[in-house]
Design a protein around this nucleic acid. Structure first.
Length: 543
RNA sequence: GCCCCGAUAGCUCAAGUGGAUAGAGCAUCUGCCUUCUAAGCAGAGGGUUACAGGUUCGAGUCCUGUUCGGGGUACCA
């Protein structure tokens, strides 16, 4: 409908000989009294035309072609042009929704293009925390939206298993293992303190006894830790209905020679150089902030940038049309270097979209707690799911914009859980289910062609209006890659439904009206269910 | 020091690219269940959108500065 109105306005501008702006802005109104859509076009043009906006608005409206969907066009000071949709147009949406069912709102704008969404990517050094939860839910929901809009989506989890972090992890297990064997050395403070390390150590001891007592660098420690921790991570993610298509590890980039290949190519291209025994990348010349070390001199190994660049070359080689990287704020300074590296190698970096989300600040009784996997000061995602359940966890994170620093207090989480707005949405869905059950019980059939013209009370028209907005919201979510618009919308839809529900009985003695209203609430249920599905939240039949 | 993100009701957060009277939930207070689910609805109170300037028809939104918070700024990831 927005497109239609834009076309009408463009036609009017042409008839009047007014200049055509690049974008004719048409937006939903905030208030019912302003109609369904409005444009600020007249106010924008008033400057270039050097005429008062109200006059411009008059002129535009006078040349506006008529359209059956629009009953009224109103001009309001200082120059808004408001459009009112006809009841007939609004009523039609009920039939469309019921016909499309679970597919209502899907689109094909993605044209089957392949998208990779990389997220979570937490190194397997400990359980996922509440902080990871935000990214996990955000990434998964973005993937769901892309897939819903016709993209072919793959979820990927990348992890580092070649650097110092995993070395420390292996040694942490080794020390616990030694302790279990009766050796009494101190456990180093900067090693992983969590109890899960002890459990892994115990398993090794149970299986192999003291065989590795003096073999700190035996790969078994690292491997056992990785395996055990990853098993837990997968389990936690599965509880949130998040399943990755692929896991990609850093080590393989060394094994298959990609890291060296990048290094060689950089040298050939002259974008790297040696200084002080280290190999540097001229990142500054390719959009980075400054030149960066790729290969260290103090230790014979790469910095994280090099494998990161190598990793991203595989994303291009794997042929994705769109590459989405979701990072926490701590990666903010590093990704420009990766992009610079890819640019230097000649890749089209515009295919990469980097989404940076802010952290979750953990508080406990008002005091800020610094989360650290190393020191085992964290609230695990599992604990949170235990406490409030999957739906609340997902919704809790999706309600917030990714740029907001959000505060999280576990003490508050439980009450937040009980009062969470997600139930408001689910309740609307369940209430409708209950009505439909009753209709079935009374053997009132859902007619294929109910008389939708009976749907014309103010609350009903407002509800219809909300229904027509769904596909617009999906489009916004796709363009911005910000799912929280959908949560805001679904709340609006639920409010609209609950108001309708308290004002009007669906099932009554009036059969045609009952059938029309049944079709309406069924449509609301479908949109609610589809929306909740996109958020990965359950749509219950009963509560 | 420099860079990025933020600061909105008592609390947690919203507010497509600058638009109309800044909105929800929680908390507080007042009404509404013989009816398809009261996990609901109606209403009240609560705001100098951190502060000071600027841009313009119009600023929570854009620009400059200040204060406070988070994250970076490494041959850590």
């Amino acid at each position: 409908m927005i497109n239609t109105i834009q076309e009408l306005l463009r036609t009017s501008l042409e008839l009047k000989g007014y200049p055509q702006p690049d974008k004719v802005m048409v937006a939903r109104t905030k208030q019912e009294s302003f109609g369904n859509y409005s444009t600020t076009l007249a106010m924008e043009l008033s400057k270039t035309l050097k005429r008062p906006p109200l006059e411009v608005a008059q002129e535009i409206v006078s040349a506006l072609p008529t359209n059956p969907a629009i009953t009224k066009v109103e001009i309001i000071a200082p120059g808004f042009i408001n459009f009112f949709l006809s009841p007939q147009f609004l009523q039609k949406v009920v039939a469309e929704i019921n016909q499309a069912g679970a597919n209502y709102g899907r689109s094909t704008v993605g044209k089957g293009q392949r998208v990779q969404v990389e997220f979570v990517s937490a190194n397997p050094t400990g359980p996922l925390t509440v902080g990871h939860g935000r990214q996990a839910v955000l990434g998964d929901t973005i993937a769901r939206i892309l897939s819903w809009c016709g993209y072919q989506v793959e979820r990927e989890y990348y992890y580092n298993d070649a650097g110092r972090q995993t070395r420390v992890l292996g040694h942490s297990v080794y020390y616990r293992y030694r302790q279990l064997l009766g050796y009494s050395e101190e456990f180093p403070e900067d090693y992983y303190q969590g109890d899960y390390i002890k459990e892994i150590a115990k398993k090794i001891k149970d299986e192999y006894g003291a065989r590795f007592a003096n073999d700190a660098d035996n790969p078994i420690f690292k491997q056992a830790a990785e395996e055990a921790i990853f098993a837990d991570i997968r389990k936690t993610l599965a509880r949130l209905d998040i399943v990755f298509d692929s896991y990609y590890n850093e080590k393989s980039l060394y094994d298959d020679g990609r890291v060296n290949a990048v290094l060689r190519r950089f040298a050939e291209l002259g974008v790297s150089y040696e200084r002080d025994g280290a190999i540097w990348f001229r990142a500054g010349q390719y959009g980075g902030t400054a030149d960066r070390v790729l290969w260290k001199s103090v230790v014979d190994e790469a910095t994280y940038r090099l494998p990161d660049i190598a990793y991203h070359t595989t994303k291009f080689e794997r042929g994705y049309d769109l590459i989405i990287d979701i990072f926490g704020a701590d990666h903010h300074a590093t990704y420009p270097d990766v992009l610079a590296g890819l640019r230097a190698l000649g890749y089209d970096v515009s295919r990469i979209k980097v989404l940076i989300h802010q952290f979750v600040t953990l508080t406990q009784g008002g005091e800020k707690v610094k989360m650290s996997t190393r020191r085992a000061t964290y609230v695990t995602l599992d604990e949170l799911i235990d406490e409030v359940g999957k739906d609340v966890v997902r919704y809790f994170f999706l309600m917030r914009g990714m740029k907001s620093h959000l505060n999280f207090d576990l003490q508050l989480a439980k009450t937040e859980g009980e009062e969470n707005p997600v139930f408001y949405l689910q309740y609307a869905h369940a209430r409708i289910a209950s009505i439909l059950r009753k209709a079935q019980h009374l053997q009132i059939a859902l007619t294929a062609e109910p008389d939708l013209s009976l749907l014309n009370e103010p609350e009903t028209l407002a509800l219809l209006n909300a229904l027509t907005e769904f596909s617009e919201v999906i489009a916004i979510c796709l363009n911005t890659l910000e799912p929280q618009h959908l949560t805001v919308y679904l709340t609006k839809l639920a409010t609209s439904f609950h108001k309708f529900y308290t004002e009007h009985r669906v099932i009554s003695d009036n059969l045609p009206l009952s059938q029309a209203r049944l079709a309406l609430v069924k449509a609301v249920q479908i949109v609610m269910a589809n929306g909740l599905h996109l958020l990965g939240v359950a749509a219950p039949e009963k509560m």
